[in-house]
Design a binder for these strands. Structure first.
Lengths: 384, 384
DNA sequence: GTCACTTACGTAACGGTATCGCATAACTGT
DNA sequence: ACAGTTATGCGATACCGTTACGTAAGTGAC
């Protein structure tokens, strides 16, 4: 654990590394000429040429029409995002949200299927599978290369559901094992709050933050966390379960006033309009949320707190009061923003995670067999 | 922030990578033969031979007497830990603790120098420098290649002291800039609680934990944290400042009963012996500490909590009550252990950090110019 | 339409790196 | 002294990346 021994590599490693570099330049960018790719990746045009030939052969990139300019027209290549697709699933109690994305992460299609209530574990699993199958059937010719399921609960590193309060019938289920057999592609699974955080980091409110906490405020209260640009789960995936500290009141009446209101949006607008009863409830709610968030903020000192979940639809009406209370509780209060992705966050995050695994499987250079070297613990030095 | 573009490499990168691999095998291990090094690093004997020749040339390794066995005796090489040294300094209010270590991290010498009270910022800095100079003078022929200072306070990423309550005269001081001129070697600086955590992870109570929280309980209460095997500082280095949440009572009377006792060790032994007044104080103290720790534990869900600082000298007498209270407050309580390194933890951690930076400067392979690729966010998948 | 200019392409040569195969060296044990 | 064992050292081969240079394919001016 202290000293990861990295193993050496042969010349082929270099090519893998450089392939990854070229691909990294080309994806999420305009079509480019060999020369410009070489400049961006610090490689000679020759090397880029060789890598490009391999990638074209494999169908990952393709040539596009050259731009007209002075001199001999340079070949241009673009990343073929359509060369592969991934499926992200957000599994809720009453339905499943599906997102089909290409290799760029662009959403090709999304949908929501309902799941009947009262289904047993096996029947529910089958309902999810057949719903996904129907969804995919509407997009002929597209087979996912990787999929990821987001569920409300704790999943262990083997892909088995350890504890899901909303879906107790799945406790102990080998979800990844089951889903791996569905569409002849690798499957992955992750807690939904973590996936929402991943999505917000990818293309949501946390695009510019590498340390942030994502609080889902809704019927359930869930927390996802990215630290150092990576999801932080903790031992057993229980990071962020601050609600367990009774002292902070996350399970008390001030939370339930809001969570159990049949029309919480109304409550927030009433409060803003001057209804003092509503305002009192909102303020107590915001204060309670802020207390729990403050404990987490003081612990990890993040750049940002994102408020998501159903209640975040109220926008500033809910975020504003939480922000005010948080500023009183923290020495160095972070930015507080509402979720930018709304209800699709979890499914998008699932697609992102499927994509990450796919990229790693397809193009991962794997320096040695070990983890990338951690390097020193800081950059706080200056050379004499 | 979302997509680190890594740049390509030439064949020389391969050699750097393999040099690092060979060195990684050789250091902190018995002297080895070329063949065995090759097996350990997944390299051919030929390649190892070439790398070994370079490293011997540079003085980093040397040949030792072969082992006698059947067959032609194989050359054996060992890492020359004595080829470089680092200096770790633990700067306190009343004195400085110094540790001189070699490239293996073995402590060559340690010492403590006193600093007169009431010194101004400049005079205090000069006292630290001259103390270190005197210490080094007793070890002729040894010049540090890197040094690190641990101080009680927040340091920014440029090496300037941002906020130190115990040493207010250093606020705003460019500590790294100043220390870089002392011994013609790069200097680094870090918060002392973080360094203590680093040391416990290296060769202390947290050797087998990659996610842990280190609580320093003493006159001050400080927290250092490692998550994912790396120090976690947070934006502005304020991670772990849970004491700021008044609700948790870290600044209240139950803490001061113990902190301000002239003989706290006595208090713990009295409590264990049955003195009900002492026992009450200890229990209130433990409960208060546990409340703050619980907030952090529920936030990051670590593998381990280490209790260090002056009060941890009481061992189980203080750790036991904290553990009991923590078990009542957390769903999934982590292991709780006393510090294994005691008062030398900070200086040792400083030496470790100096060493990390030195290793990176000397042997860092630096795949491309960019950060190592993060890879997917989990390994929770199974291939279909 | 021709010519100069510009930029990219494609081949060839070169150096660095790693690997495999094989003859040789060096030591142990009988 | 000799067989057995293991490491060493040399040579050949293959892969990769870079530089150099002649050639191709456009644009723009006249």
């Amino acid at each position: 654990m202290n000293s990861p021994v990295l193993s050496g590599g042969d010349p082929a490693l270099l090519r893998r590394l450089n392939t990854e570099a070229v691909l990294g330049v080309l994806r999420n960018a305009e079509p480019m000429t060999l020369t410009r790719i070489g400049q961006a990746a610090s490689l000679s045009r020759q090397t880029v040429d060789a890598v490009i030939a391999e990638l074209t052969e494999g169908g990952w990139i393709e040539e596009v029409a050259p731009e007209r300019s002075i001199g001999r027209p340079a070949r241009r290549y673009r990343f073929r995002a359509e060369a592969g697709h991934v499926l992200g699933l957000d599994i809720g109690v009453t339905g499943v949200r599906l997102v089909l994305a290409d290799l760029d992460g662009s959403v090709i299609a999304s949908d929501r299927t309902r799941i009947p209530e009262g289904l047993g574990g096996g029947a529910r699993l089958e309902a999810v599978r057949s719903g996904a199958e129907g969804f995919l059937a509407r997009h002929p010719g597209i087979r996912p290369r990787s999929l990821c399921l987001g569920i409300p609960g704790i999943i262990d590193s083997g892909g088995t559901v350890r504890l899901s309060t909303p879906l107790p019938e799945w406790n102990g289920l080998d979800l990844v094992g089951a889903a791996s057999t569905w569409f002849d592609c690798p499957a992955h699974a992750e807690n939904d709050a973590n996936l929402a955080a991943l999505a917000e980091h990818w293309r949501g409110a946390a695009r510019h933050a590498d340390d942030f906490i994502h609080v889902i405020a809704g019927h359930r209260t869930g927390v996802g966390m990215m630290l150092g640009g990576r999801l932080h789960r903790g031992r057993g995936g229980a990071a962020g379960e601050i609600g367990a500290l009774a002292l902070l009141g996350w399970e008390g009446p001030s939370m339930n006033d809001i969570r159990e209101a049949e029309d919480s949006a109304r409550l927030f607008s009433d409060a803003q309009a001057g209804d003092s009863d509503a305002a009192g409830k909102v303020d107590r709610f915001a204060r309670t949320v802020a207390q729990g968030v403050a404990a987490m903020v003081l612990t990890v000192n993040p750049d940002l707190v994102v408020i998501g979940g159903g209640l975040s639809r109220a926008g500033e009406a809910v975020v504003g009061p939480i922000r005010s209370h948080l500023e009183q509780l923290c020495l160095d209060p972070p930015q507080v923003d509402a979720s930018a992705l709304g209800v699709e966050a979890v499914a998008l995050g699932a697609a992102r995670m499927a994509l990450d695994h796919l990229n790693d499987a397809l193009f991962g250079a794997h320096v040695g067999a070990a983890a990338p070297s951690a390097g020193p613990q800081s950059r706080r030095g200056v050379t004499a």
